[in-house]
Simulated assay, not measured.
Amino acid sequence: MIEVEVEAGAWTAALPDAEAVAARAAKAALGTVEGDVVVLLSDDAAVRALNARFRDKDRPTNVLSFPAPENAFPHLGDIVLAHGVCAEEAQVQGKTLADHLSHLVVHGVLHLLGRDHEDDAEAEEMEAEERDILAGLGVADPYAAEREGRA
């Protein structure tokens, strides 16, 4: 089961179908994996507080993933997204908020499934998986501009 909770009204003000977009992306990222995920669409202040508490980083970030302990199955974990950070990133990157939200939900769910990007090899593998999932949703490669910049 995928549960999407809107804590910050800015999400639905900017993207009326934010809940559906997030649920669709989470479902795509889960693929055939069985389990429950909660997606919380929040604001910068709430994400900043969580980031400070759990990661010792006193600033908002776009998405945080909180994997559930194995004994909590079928609950796989929670992801929390900050509206202000996500909206600003989408604008700066020339993406729609819906596409950026889809990408970040996919990214967050993959973290819940154990994927990571601590080193270059892991990052390349995770990004490839994200691109494949997003392509299935009709979302353009979110890393294309970054790769073009490296070339």
Rank of each mutant, 00 (worst) to 15 (best):
A52G: 03
A22W: 07
K27Y: 06
A72T: 00
D119N: 15
E130F: 09
L97E: 13
N71H: 09
G9T: 05
N62D: 07
N51G: 05
A123P: 01
L50Q: 06
G35D: 06
G84K: 10
L101P: 10
V105K: 07
E130H: 14
E125T: 09
A10P: 07
H100N: 12
D58T: 01
V80T: 04
E129T: 08
H103S: 03
E88Y: 12
P16W: 08
E5K: 13
A22K: 02
V92W: 13
A144G: 11
E89M: 10
A121Y: 10
A13T: 13
A8P: 04
H100G: 00
A145P: 06
A18H: 07
L104T: 06
A121H: 09
D56G: 01
G114D: 15
L30R: 04
H111P: 12
D43V: 03
R55T: 01
I79C: 01
D17A: 02
R48A: 11
A90H: 14
A72Q: 02
E19R: 15
H103E: 13
G94I: 12
P60L: 04
V21L: 02
A25I: 00
L137T: 07
H111N: 14
N51E: 03
V39Y: 00
I79F: 00
R53C: 05
V38M: 03
H100V: 08
D58E: 04
A144R: 14
G31Q: 09
I79A: 03
V63D: 00
A22F: 08
G77Y: 01
H111I: 12
C86P: 03
A151E: 15
R59I: 09
D36F: 05
A68I: 01
G108R: 10
V33L: 10
E127I: 06
E5S: 14
A45K: 12
D44V: 07
A13I: 11
E3A: 12
R147G: 11
A25S: 10
K27F: 07
H83Y: 10
T12W: 09
E34I: 05
V106D: 06
H117W: 14
A20N: 14
A10V: 03
D116I: 02
E70R: 02
E148F: 13
I133L: 05
P60A: 13
A52N: 02
A52L: 10
L41T: 03
R147Y: 08
A68W: 01
G108S: 04
L112R: 01
F66L: 05
V39N: 01
H103T: 10
E148P: 09
L81E: 06
D120N: 12
H117F: 11
K95H: 11
K27P: 00
S102T: 07
L137C: 01
L76Y: 00
L41W: 00
L76T: 00
D43P: 04
P16Q: 10
P142F: 05
H103R: 14
A135D: 08
A23K: 12
K27H: 13
V85K: 11
E5V: 14
R24W: 02
R24C: 04
L64F: 01
V47L: 14
R55Q: 12
A128M: 03
R150Q: 15
E7I: 15
N71W: 14
M1C: 08
E122T: 07
A46N: 04
D56Q: 12
A8H: 14
G94R: 10
G149M: 07
A82N: 06
D116H: 15
P69K: 06
A45G: 00
R48Y: 08
G9P: 10
P16R: 01
D58A: 05
